[in-house]
Write a protein that binds this DNA or RNA. Structure first.
Lengths: 226, 226
DNA sequence: CGCGGCTTTGATGTTCATCAAGTAAAGTGG
DNA sequence: CCACTTTACTTGATGAACATCAAAGCCGCG
């Protein structure tokens, strides 16, 4: 990737509100790192040392709970930040971030970001907006999820892959059935059973990883009322 | 309440990092408002016009979902902010805040807070820390909650009243059984049944509103493993 | 003192977890 | 590239957890 496109990536990432020299300093400090599928980017308890962002690939954000189970909170895609809520102010990260696909992650020096926050009011305002928006969205989605039962939640997850991640009715799942179960909060077997029901009802079609949504409207209804 | 104690309340509220004149300006701008039990402080969809904080009383933070049910997210107590995540940057508030008991709420002019953010780096840093901490805690608690079933969740709520809100093993519930159910995410009847079980097992004792925790350790175990 | 909302208990059915067992897919070493 | 091992996927049967419906007692308040 050439320098100009890095610049434009960073500019977009930071709300197009950076001054030229600030943009330049960030580009100079920026370090790209590749992660294999399954590799941890941040593990809960880690001290977050960089301001990081996904450039390529998908990342699962989850908590390993007290009894050792994974609970997936959301799936992150390019331009999403890694551990943004923990990056400045908490000693340890409460979540784990793991690559679902091969990833390229951009790491930026925290102190540099801090100093730009102090200098550039627009930047700090936009960053706080971003904070709020992320927290807000996550919380609202979680509550929406909470009131649904299995069918609704599964429909929701499938639609989110289709609409938020892949922008297509047909896609390859980047997660296992077990991971869908950890996302939805039910057993793996029941995810499979319900997917098979959807298939029987001609709402979706699938073969292992490949999924095709046949009837979006019904799926949306299920994700709303189910 | 006299002026000196208002000053000390505001100073504590804002992390003791305000300069004298900033503190003074906030105290001058501050307006106290009383709310009756059951009165809305902010309703979802409202545009948040003040930076607000609880001075006295308890407030329930909840979402009214698409099918008209309330889903309680958490219960707020004095020194907690109202709609802090929505106050600066989102046009409309995603949540509803309702007084559970008679309340005194302090309202501060948002523009004043904004201008102090621009002036005082310590203040903006502390405010962002606060943002992060609140989001983080809320999310971690919600995920902890998610993996538990009824008994565990109820135990968790009862302990949270005892330890976080009242600092006492005996207290009057500020919520109805229905509200506990909306918090826990199950039916009212099953909250009642499970409370009766706890009573039969001599873990708690209660009569309508009055609750006394008899066996904290068992309750903690249930809230952990249940 | 009667009305309405809150609380409580019981009976019944639905949803989902768990166990078991088998098949398909994917990774591994020769 | 194949045999082997492991992991992921799938289906069925059973029981536990929980929702829902129904009905009755309680309590505060006008």
């Amino acid at each position: 990737m050439n320098f100009q496109s890095t610049k434009s990536f960073v500019d977009d990432l930071f709300f197009n509100c950076l001054k030229d020299d600030e943009l330049q300093r960030i580009c100079n400090s920026l370090r790209e790192q590749e992660y294999d599928k399954g590799e941890h980017i941040v593990y809960q308890g880690d001290i977050v040392k960089h301001f990081s962002c996904i450039k390529e690939g998908l990342v699962k954000l989850y908590i390993v709970n007290e009894i050792g189970n994974d609970q997936i909170i959301t799936i992150l895609k390019p331009y999403n930040f890694i551990a943004i809520l923990n990056v400045f102010f908490l000693h340890k990260c409460s979540y784990t971030f793991t690559a679902l696909t091969p990833c390229v992650i951009c790491h930026i020096d925290i102190d540099l970001i801090r100093s730009i926050i102090d200098e550039n009011t627009d930047f700090s305002t936009e960053l706080m907006k971003k904070f709020s928006k992320i927290s807000n969205t996550t919380l609202v989605e979680l509550m929406k999820f909470k009131r649904l039962q299995l069918r609704g939640r599964l429909a929701y997850v499938l639609l989110s892959f289709s609409q938020r991640i892949y922008h297509s009715l047909e896609f390859d799942l980047p997660v296992t059935r077990k991971e869908i179960a950890e996302f939805v909060g039910v057993s793996t077997e029941n995810i499979i059973r319900t997917m098979s029901e959807f298939k029987k009802d001609k709402i979706i079609d699938f073969s292992t990883k490949r999924v095709k949504i046949l009837d979006v409207k019904t799926l949306e209804q299920i994700s709303f009322f189910g």
